[in-house]
Computed example of a mutant assay.
Amino acid sequence: MSTTESSSQFNNLETLSTHDLLAGMNSVDQTVPQAVAKALPQLEALVEATVARVGAGGRLFYIGAGTSGRLGILDASECPPTFGVPHGIVIGLIAGGDTAIRKAVENAEDDAEQAWRDLQAHAITDRDIVVGIAASGRTPYVIGGLAQARQHGLATGCIVCNAGSAVAAAAEFPVEVVTGPEFVTGSTRLKAGTAQKLVLNMLTTATFIRLGRVKGNKMVDMQLSNHKLVDRGERMLVDELGISQPEAADLLRQHGSVRAALDAYQSS
């Protein structure tokens, strides 16, 4: 049996107080970063492969089902506003299509052929990289998609939460974060989902830092899409250039992004 499906170390959950439920979940959640740390060498290899493909004009695709698929879509959706990259550089696909983002689509994950069809709809090429996300490591949608992608010469990676899985065997760059039994037996939206979110954060953040989308420690290419982000951009310019807030605001209005404002000011 996979460790994510093995019995919880806690029992009689329905008899516990709210305090004890929360304390129990918090105690097991503290093991997740430790599990991620053990997988850092594997994650490093996946990041390097992703940097190489995206840096050469390729794209990063995520494929997954259920919670795993939704986490991939979440990470993909956050890359344009955070790093200023175009939509379509990071793409999340979920078994069952967009409907499955909000509502479970029964049996969609059991179709081993659908992921490749979904990828082909995006005119996928051997310049791209496909990362399968599956806590169990045995989702047919993900296994089939990775196998087809690899057969067609694409780079492939995965994020799984069990050792020795079929998904990992199908990927060239597997990342295995072994999180163990869940607080509620088999509920991989808990520890496993947390681990996947951490790894996804690290994968795209490290990739886009390596590709020059961060300067110092600042998101200089972020989209200035609301007042909070405009204020953050102004503070970046104040800190970096030693100018006043009104000057920073004017500079940002003129040039539209922190990077463009920095470049214009420093070249003047």
Score class of each variant (00 low, 15 high):
Gln148Thr: 15
Thr188Tyr: 08
Pro174Met: 03
Gln245Tyr: 07
Glu247Asp: 12
Leu237Glu: 13
Thr188Trp: 09
Asp110Val: 12
Val90Asn: 08
Val177Phe: 04
Val167Gln: 04
Ala147Leu: 13
Ile129Leu: 02
Ala65Pro: 05
Asp118Gly: 15
Ala112Cys: 07
Lys197Arg: 11
Leu203Val: 01
Gly153Thr: 07
Ser244Thr: 15
Val105Ser: 14
Ala108Ser: 14
Val167Phe: 08
Val90Thr: 09
Ile89Ser: 14
Ser187Pro: 02
Ala52Trp: 00
Ser136Gly: 14
Ala134Glu: 05
Val167Thr: 14
Ile143Thr: 15
Tyr62Val: 04
Ser77Ala: 15
Gly132Val: 04
Ala134Gly: 06
Ala45Thr: 11
Ala108Thr: 06
Ile73Pro: 00
Val175Arg: 08
Ser68Asp: 05
Ala45His: 15
Thr188Asp: 08
Val36Phe: 12
Thr139Val: 01
Gly144Val: 12
Ser2Leu: 10
Leu43Cys: 05
Gln34Thr: 15
Ile129Pro: 00
Leu229Lys: 02
Ile91Arg: 02
Glu78Leu: 03
Ala195Gln: 04
Glu14His: 08
Ala39Gln: 11
Ala264Leu: 01
Glu48Tyr: 04
Gln34Glu: 15
Ser136His: 09
Leu200Pro: 00
Ala23Ile: 11
Arg102Asn: 13
Ser244Asn: 06
Asn11Met: 02
Asp221Gln: 10
Arg53Ala: 14
Ala123Leu: 09
Thr188Gly: 10
Val238Asn: 06
Ser187His: 06
Arg138His: 13
Tyr62Asn: 07
Lys191Asn: 13
Gly193Lys: 07
Ala171Trp: 01
Ile91Asn: 05
Gly145Lys: 12
Arg259Gly: 05
Ser2Gly: 00
Val28Pro: 03
Thr18Ile: 13
Pro81Met: 04
Val175Glu: 02
Asn26Leu: 13
Leu16Val: 00
Ile63Asn: 02
Arg117Asn: 12
Gly144Tyr: 15
Arg213Met: 11
Ser68His: 09
Lys215Phe: 12
Asp239Arg: 06
Ile159Trp: 05
Gly137Ser: 03
Gln266Ala: 04
Gln196Met: 00
Lys218Phe: 14
Ala170Pro: 01
Leu46Gly: 09
Ala104His: 11
His87Tyr: 09
Asn201Glu: 00
Ala206Arg: 02
Ile73Asp: 05
Val178Trp: 03
Arg213Cys: 08
Cys158Asp: 03
Leu229Gly: 07
Ala121Met: 10
Leu46Lys: 08
Ala35Tyr: 14
Ser136Val: 03
Val184Ser: 06
Leu13Ile: 01
Gly84Asn: 10
Ile133Glu: 04
Gln266Tyr: 00
Asp250Gln: 14
Thr179Ala: 09
Thr4Tyr: 03
Gly24Asn: 02
Ala170His: 01
Val230Asn: 00
Pro41Leu: 10
Arg102Ala: 13
Ala149Pro: 13
Ser165Trp: 03
Gln223Trp: 13
His122Val: 10
Leu146Val: 09
Gly256Lys: 11
Pro33Glu: 13
Met202Glu: 01
Ala192Gln: 05
Val177His: 08
Leu211Trp: 02
